[in-house]
Every structure is written in C-alpha cells, then in structure tokens.
Design a protein around this nucleic acid. Sequence first.
RNA 1: GCCGAGGUAGCUAAGCCCGGUUUAAGGCGCCGGCCUUGAGAGCCGGUGGUGUUCGCACCGCGGGAGUUCGAAUCCCCCCCUCGGCGCCA
Length: 425
Amino acid sequence: MLDIKLIRENPEVVQENLKKRGNQFILDTLQGTIQHDKEWREIAEKLNNSRAERNKIAREVAELRKEGEDATELIDQTDKLSTKIQQLEDREKQLRNAIDNNMKLLPNLLHKDVPPGKDESENVEIKTVGEPREFDFPVKNHVEIIENLGLADFESSAKTSGSGFYILKGDLALLNQALIQFAIEHMRIKGYVYVEPPLLLYKDILTAALDMEGFQQSIYNVDQDDLCLIGTSEYSLLAMHTDEVIQESELPKKYFAYSMCFRKEIGSHGINERGLWRTHQFNKVEQFVFCMPEDSDKYYDEMMVNSEEIYKALELPYRIFESCAGDLAIWKARGSDIEVWRPTTQSYGELCSLSNCTDYQARNLGIRTIKNDGTRVTLHTLNNTVLATSRTMVAILENYQNADGTVSIPDALRKHMRGKEKLGQ
RNA sequence: GCCGAGGUAGCUAAGCCCGGUUUAAGGCGCCGGCCUUGAGAGCCGGUGGUGUUCGCACCGCGGGAGUUCGAAUCCCCCCCUCGGCGCCA
C-alpha cells in the first residue's frame, strides 16, 4: 500500500499521479480515504486525551494507595470516562478499518517514465531483437509437434486433473530440466543467491503481494483459508524478509529461485486450449531484488539485461514492451514484458514480466531498512522472470522445428541434454 | 498428534510467580557530540509506531477478546518457534 503520510501531506501530488491510471474509482477511493483520515485524526486526538485522563487517574490512585489512603472517590469518577473511551475506540476502529480497506484498493504511484495509455493496446515497444525465421514448409504448432513425437500427453492429465495440466514425456521432460539448469547457471554467474522456497504460503502473506482481484482469479487456496499455492516464487522471495529491518550495508539483496507455479487462471482466455502456453501448473526461474529506494531504477535495468541474455543465448526473436499506465497492476510502479516470436500465430507472446514495485509490497509486509545515518525507510522490491519453461519450450518447438518433424535443440541447451541435437531422433 | 519450554525493541536479555518508582532495566550494535594529529578507548546524548498546537500525548511486550481505577504481568481463545515422543518420504 501507499504511505498514508504521503497522501496526507501531498494529496494533490498523489491525485495527479493516480489520475494517469485512468480509473475514476481510484480517484473516488482516494477522496474517501482523505476524508476518513481527517476524521480519524480528530477522533484519535479525542481518544488520546481521554486515555491521558484515565492514565492520570490511575497514577493518582496508585499514589493514594501507596500512602494508605482511600481512593474510592477517584475510582467512581472513571465510570463515565470508560464509556466515553469505549465509544471513541469503537469509532476509531471503524474509521481505521475503512482507511485500511481503501488503502488496499489504492494502486502504487506510477514511475515518471511510465507511458500514458488506457490499456494493453497502448503499451510502448522499446525494441525488437532477432529476425523471425523464414520457413520453406508449413509450420506446425507446438501441440502437433509434441503429439507427433509423443513427447507429452494431454488426454491423461485431463482425465486425472482437468484441462490446463499436462504430462511431459521423455526428451521434452528432459528439455524442461535443461532449461531450468540453464537459467540457474545463468543467474548463479551473475552473483544472485539461489533459493528454493516454499510452494505454499499463508493467505495473509499472499494478499500482501497482489490485489484481491488477482488473488481470486489466480490463487489456489488449500487447507481451507489458511495456506495457498504460490502463483510465482516472486511471492515466496518477497515474503522471506517479512517484518524484518535490514541494514543498508546488507543491500541490495539479490535472489533467484526455481519453483513450480500454480494458477487457477479463472476467466483467462486460452486456458481451455490444449498445449503448454497457458497452464495451471508450470516451472519458472524468477529473479528478485531488495534494494535502497534510490537504486531501484538501476536494478530494473540490470534485471532486464539478465533476462534478455537468456533469449539472446537461445537465439529466439523477441521484443520488449513497456506497460502503459492503464495496463499496470496496482502494486507496480513500472513494468515491461519480454515477448517471444511465435511463427504459428505470427505474433509475439509474453515470456517475462519485469516490475519495479517500489515500496508498495514492502510496506505491506513491513520490510524496512535502517540507513547508514540511522533513519528508517521502507525499501524497494523488484522482480522479473528469468525463464518459464513451458512457454520457452513452446517458443523452441515452434521456432526450431524442421521439415521432417524433428526439432533442433538450441546450442546453449545441448550441454544440459548430454549433447543431444534434436528432439525426435 | 501428544507432552514440555518459549515468543519483549535492529540483536541480546531482565521484568511475569506476587498488577502500580520501569518513562519496558542492563548489554551489544548503530547514529551524533566531547576528547584526539587520526583511529581506538573513555565520557555524554540519541536509537519502535502514530498524532501533534513541536510543549507533549497516546499506542507498543506473538495475535485477539476479557477482568481492573490501572495489564508485559491475571483469565480465556488462537497463532507461531524450539525440544522430546509418535507417525512418515
């Protein structure tokens, strides 16, 4: 959430920023918050004064008792005061809840470089890298290729778990592992710390990482309302330092994780189409940085480079799009996607999602830092996909397919495949 | 799952039995100052959150209810950690 002090002290600055998201509901929520906060401060002051009075009486009672004197007269005075305090406390709690609920709905402030725009259609292309290959035979989509080579089974998994799941077999399952190893090796060399995190997190933790809409549409809830399956290891990595105060000298903390990811994908287009592009369960290597506020722009660029190098090494044509104001999730100050070329759809599809969440997620989880001068600030968090294996496999299968139905394995992966050069041979 | 011990500030650790001189002690670390050529040592001050009329006030001892004039301390419910036993990949 945002810093309430910022709203209180610079309401017009916050309003101007939030206006760029192009959502009237957000602006209304902001106004409501400002009103509630004003009233809350008035009530809180009255409450504090009454409590001060009560504390004073308590001290006087203690004083009298100590000297062996009678305090019943004083104690009798507290009846009305107690009632008053109770009423003020009820009202204060009410207002605070209202403010808290509003704060959860208010999105992060946008980074100054975020392009304007109302939705996905106005995202801005940053660059395109690599040339789509020319095919001199009819291209097959990845599902056809897989089924022809017997490298996956979608029917069996549908029987056991429903659509959106899959069974990888043989060389494709091994390619999955090769991609994971490849991505881990890449990030390890960069000096990021490898983490294998829990795949289940408390609901409270998860709702601090994303909004209610995102939660309801994507998160599997198990064990009734307590634990949830992670949709991405971003959540686990973020949560690692919950309620911690980190010394400035320990920052930045750079991590990467491999995990399985689980998503309901309610209402998502494509979840019922067969294949590996959109699934309920997938493997992903994710990078994550905790840093000082003034450094988050720098790591934003660094994390994009880290991921780009993966697709350059795999020789897959890709482009980078910067998300416009209207297309950013509420916890993001800024975001960009890497999209890969698919010859079958003749379009680019999302592979990586880079976000600078500034202090928004960190504030939700109480992750702070003590600066070298002794003062405290909420730190910044950033995350980016390194490699999600299923989508990358789709890209490889479709871009590297051969006329004879086999699929060449990118050079960069062969050492992780015992030198194997082609799938289907 | 059962039994036991615990959860106090950045870390550590008293206070809890027996409610009120404790403003949540002391130590470590960190920040500032004095001193010093410099560093260290030593000494002094500061070091959770909120509000503020910048005087101060309130809140804060895992979370939530309760008793009381007054709760870190007493009662109840819940969560978590550690150890032992049990079960198990």
